[in-house]
Amino acid sequence: MVGVLMTTPESARVEPEAAQPDVETTVAELAPLYRQMLAIRRMEEACAKAYSQGKIGGFLHLIIGQEAVCVGAVAAIQRDDYVVATYREHGHAYAKGIAARPIMAELYGKKTGLVKGLGGSMHLFDKATNFLGGHGIVGGHVPIGAGAALASKYRGDGRVTLCFFGDGASTIGGFAEGLALAALWKLPLVLICENNRYSMGTPLYRSLAVEDVSLRALAHGMARDRFDGDDVVKVKRRIAEAVERARTTGEPTLVEIVTYRFRGHSMSDPGLYRTKDEVEEWKRRDPLHRSRDRLLTLGMAPAELEALEEDVRLEIEDSVRFAEESPAADSYLPYVIKE
């Protein structure tokens, strides 16, 4: 019967590309990016452990597998540029320059947390690094990103805003309106769709009539780009092009980066909607391992690499200890209304 299946037609499906060759780089460029990705991976693993011990509550959405996207993209901007992210944002916050200690303490609900125990995993904010959250309503933060970009245009401060969201946000109104207004008003914004192929448990082919999210840019006359997120250096280079466009011409770009989360949507999700083979296939493309192999190929001394990894281990262990030993959150009233 015609029209029974409400899925993407074959002609509008996009299979992930096979792994692409490495983008040219150096140890000096790649090593710090690898370090950030590793720190995020270890931080997320520590979060998962603490969550299973009941030390972290609420929802916990891990980014394991997608680290190259936030690390590569944030590496392409300046320190005072703005970043707006979703509830899966520990990595983005770390990449923007927020230390592991206040992030971990926030997840533990402690007074020393980044937002004093008032936000938790989904609501990290940091004025010092221009990290504008940490948003829990899918797509609702896209207009906020456009607003920060509008402020930059208003002031002529030359800043660029990166706004991250998932493929699942591409169906909601906040994304549609943010995209339309950013294009109309030529805002210095880079909209980054982290397409991990599932909006929670629903695959792309049951969410989108056309799987290529970047095509939405065409309707608005907006520049677009689409590529895989396996190689952190590639992410950095391609986002840098969009950032350059925003900074010099003030025009936005819609960038779609194809990636994969190795864990479920949140800690309560065992991910049964995906086959083991599919997950294993993506794990073979793990951006973290790829960068490590690349560093060795580029001639980084194994001892040096191991020292870097030991340093990361100590940093994350320290953040957990800091969170464990910090005093409990103690106050919320002063932050409802600014006097």
Binding site: P143, I144, G147, A148, L150, G174, G178, A180
Partner: peptide
């Protein structure tokens, strides 16, 4: 244009900074 969610949110983002 007619996009209350969009321009209200743009206001919030601009106010944040």
């Amino acid at each position: 244009p007619i996009a209350e969610m969009g321009f209200a949110g743009i206001g919030v983002g601009a106010a944040m900074v």
